[in-house]
């Protein structure tokens, strides 16, 4: 205790400088954490969080027995897995190509194009999607008609979205992710490549035997981060691409869109509070578990 007081006295100014951020995080992040007890309450807005009645496990029962729980969980996990594979794979390939290709100008220009999607909001991406897929004047149906094929109503065809959503996800994120891999590749010791050159290794051999093994740690970290988020859906993407189009929910509804909808369109708040609890707690457990395993195997790659 004495130590504590002495530290406060010695670094008083530093602790004062910390206050704004500490208080903001307390208010915006820690205080709401208490709100996850809502999952066990029968929430009534006018009674507030503390005033509402306890509901035991009823909310969870509803969430899963209605079938919604399993559906949104399945969709969230499947989309995350598909997105993880496509985006990371494409980003690695693009990073390797960008690093080794000749022609500075071409490199610069293509890089600029590939990073651009990160800079725009999902609203704009939603407009793009609509320009491509809308039934009357979309590019897709324009092309189909020109080829003499029948137009498709993409917004009434759930199965197509298993292709569309990962495509847009990759479109938006591959540029950003590839920068991370480029940074990792730049960190590789050039001597490795020089000695490989002397041994007469060709560019593919260098890629497979030097580049890929050297960025292994980065790849693992990226995979871990994604697995830690496997129950979180990118709300903005799903909402802007799909909207409140009930016809598509069987293939597009994720936990985050489900919770959001219940809030803005007056759906079942109890069920979504159960969904929130289940998502937050499970996500936390997965991260701690994964990090524990990594810490055992390779302490340097551990997140905390």
């Amino acid at each position: 205790m004495n130590n504590f007081l002495m530290e406060m006295k010695k670094n008083r100014m530093l602790y004062i400088m910390l206050l704004p951020a500490v208080l903001l995080v307390l208010l915006l992040n820690y205080l709401p954490m208490a709100g996850i007890i809502l999952a066990f309450k029968n929430f009534r807005y006018n009674l507030g969080i503390w005033g509402s009645e306890w509901a035991g496990l009823r909310n969870f029962r509803f969430f899963f027995l209605s079938g919604t729980g399993w559906m949104v969980t399945r969709n969230t996990i499947l989309y995350n897995l598909i997105n993880l594979l496509t985006t990371q794979l494409l980003a690695i390939i693009i990073a390797i190509v960008l690093n080794d290709i000749r022609g500075r100008l071409f490199k610069k220009l293509s890089q600029s194009a590939i990073f651009l999607p990160y800079f725009i909001s999902w609203i704009i991406v939603g407009v793009f999607a609509y320009n491509i897929f809308n039934y009357e004047s979309g590019l897709l149906n324009g092309a189909l008609k020109a080829l003499g094929a029948k137009p498709v109503n993409v917004y009434a065809e759930p199965s197509l979205w298993w292709l569309i959503i990962p495509s847009f996800n990759a479109w938006k994120w591959v540029g950003y992710t590839s920068v991370i891999y480029i940074a990792a590749i730049t960190g590789i010791d050039p001597e490795c490549y020089e000695s490989a050159d002397i041994d007469g290794a060709n560019i593919f051999q260098k890629t497979f035997y030097i580049t890929l093994p050297s960025i292994r740690t980065t790849i693992i970290i990226m995979l871990l981060l994604s697995i830690g988020r496997i129950l979180r859906g990118d709300f903005q993407m799903f909402y802007q691409l799909v909207g409140n189009n009930g016809q598509l929910f069987s293939a597009t509804d994720v936990i985050d869109t489900f919770v959001f909808r219940s809030l803005v369109t007056g759906g079942d708040l109890s069920m979504s509070s159960a969904a929130t609890f289940y998502q937050s707690v499970l996500c936390f457990l997965i991260i701690v578990l994964v990090n524990g395993v990594v810490r055992r195997v390779d302490p340097d790659s551990a997140l905390f």
Binding site: L28, P32, M33, I36, G48, S280, C283, V288
Partner: peptide, 11 residues
């Protein structure tokens, strides 16, 4: 790592 979720922040 852990968040209270949209609902409680909204409330």
């Amino acid at each position: 790592l852990f968040s209270g979720g949209l609902l409680s922040v909204y409330i």
